[in-house]
Design a protein around this nucleic acid. Structure first.
Lengths: 208, 208
DNA sequence: GAAAAAGATTGAACGAGTTCATTTTTTAAG
DNA sequence: CTTAAAAAATGAACTCGTTCAATCTTTTTC
């Protein structure tokens, strides 16, 4: 029997993640007790710790799944972007933001981001940081694509611009998660207001 | 006797903050036990909790002091900035970064930033966020000042530019704190590489 | 197929942050 | 000065994340 162990392992990993995500969403990260997660996943507390290093790691695993999906959606947009700088940026970023609250609540995001900052050397925090880097690379690729198609001026430093756009949208997302009352639409509007004037500056087609 | 209580209160607040900062620096945030902080400050654990809501609040209080000093230094630069966009930005940001590691270690910063993200509704996290807003406002004011002096093009949206510069320098500082091996000089160089091309775009004096 | 080795599971015990009923100190009133 | 009321200090007890020695299960060996 090639892998009863492997099968059980995969099954338990999934059950723990499902139980944790359910409880994190229902009761909030802090209120969801490890003991309860273990019980719902039908494993002991000790076993849970064989699968995840600590409570935070379980959350960051969910985030990693989430960001992976966002990256896939983003790739489609970058492959064939609107041929207008501001609009292309808006489309990509909207994709990121709209997906963000589908699996995770603001509170879960806050916790995940806090963990990845506070303990950057755990494996899953590294993974989080790596995914962040891929998102940044995707924004840079968008600027490069637009430049290749003559929409962005040739002289523009695509890497610098992409990094700055990304850091801005990322920081704005953090602010968004910090304010429970803030709606997605407000976030999008504010980021767009920041990016539009810069987009105009680097755009080949000047609107006078 | 107008205020034995008030005097004792001020004294204890200070003693707790001093003890905590000492121990955070010496042993790291996590390893510094509340019991030890209380002992060094010559109060009981319960009393410590009368003065600060939790362990994190003590740290965030230190950060608040730190940022206040940075703001003062920045105000002097904004009042009389170098008349060159890239250089003015570099000078202000260098001031921020150089001051940042004077009182706080990278680990302390990481913890403080994590707390302000994770529990944004505690009084001291609010204070932190407010100070962040003041820093952002200062960067905006720099752009406005440069614009008023004819160094930045008249049509540029100073608020949008300032916000984006600030969010970028802030995000880059987070990355800096996440990587223990990264030196201040590398951080400055990378941020400068990002800002310089944008500075050139909005500058009145075009270098061809 | 039995026994040994390797791999996983378990839950009681531990540690550190936090709480709260009780006690002590300070202030105000008579 | 005495006493009552208000404010603050205290530390033992509690909670919850985490660990680890003992136990059980699966795989491998012969």
């Amino acid at each position: 029997m090639a892998g009863l162990r492997a099968k059980q392992k995969a099954d338990r990993t999934r059950r723990i993640l499902e139980a944790a995500t359910t409880l994190f969403r229902r009761e909030g990260y802090d209120s969801a007790r490890i003991e309860d997660i273990a019980e719902m996943a039908e494993v002991s507390v000790g076993t849970l710790y064989n699968y995840y290093q600590n409570k935070g790691d379980i959350l960051v695993a969910t985030v990693a799944m989430e960001v992976t999906e966002v990256l896939e959606g983003g790739a489609r947009i970058v492959a064939n972007p609107p041929l207008n700088v501001a609009e292309a940026l808006r489309t990509l970023i909207e994709q990121y933001y709209d997906h963000s609250l589908y699996y995770l609540s603001k509170e879960m995001w806050r916790t995940a981001m806090a963990i990845s900052i506070q303990q950057p050397d755990t494996p899953l925090s590294r993974r989080y940081t790596e995914l962040d880097g891929q998102l940044c690379a995707q924004v840079i690729r968008l600027v490069e694509t637009l430049q290749a198609r003559g929409v962005v001026q040739a002289g523009v430093d695509a890497r610098a611009m992409g990094e700055v756009f990304f850091n801005n949208l990322n920081m704005m997302f953090i602010e968004f998660c910090k304010v429970d009352a803030m709606a997605l639409e407000e976030l999008k509007a504010r980021v767009n207001a920041q990016h539009e004037p810069i987009a105009a500056l680097i755009s080949s087609i000047k609107i006078v």
